[in-house]
Amino acid sequence: MRINCPLCGPRDRREFHYYGAEDFLHRPAEGAAPEAWDNHLHQRDNPAGITKDLWYHETGCSSWLLITRNTVTHEIHSAELVADRKVPTP
């Protein structure tokens, strides 16, 4: 399995650390209901197929990546820098 890091190019899977589903990016606002935190930390869609999850280029450029990939075939479709995402300002 190789991941095409936007900064470093295609690199071996061993350079990356898997963190978890995209849900980790959607941190609830301070004071949000416990259910919001439960969804953020614990509950998952866990699809068999296309998913988006967070990986850290640990022994490369130290970027956080949002990766679109297939959990059944292990195919990697795209990798984008989390830092480049346009987060809507509340």
Binding site: N39, Q43, R44, N46, A48
Partner: peptide, 18 residues
Amino acid sequence: GRSSQVAAMAGMRLPIES
């Protein structure tokens, strides 16, 4: 390992990652 798919048939989301 298939819990999330089967639970989804009943509209449930589970605290599980496979």
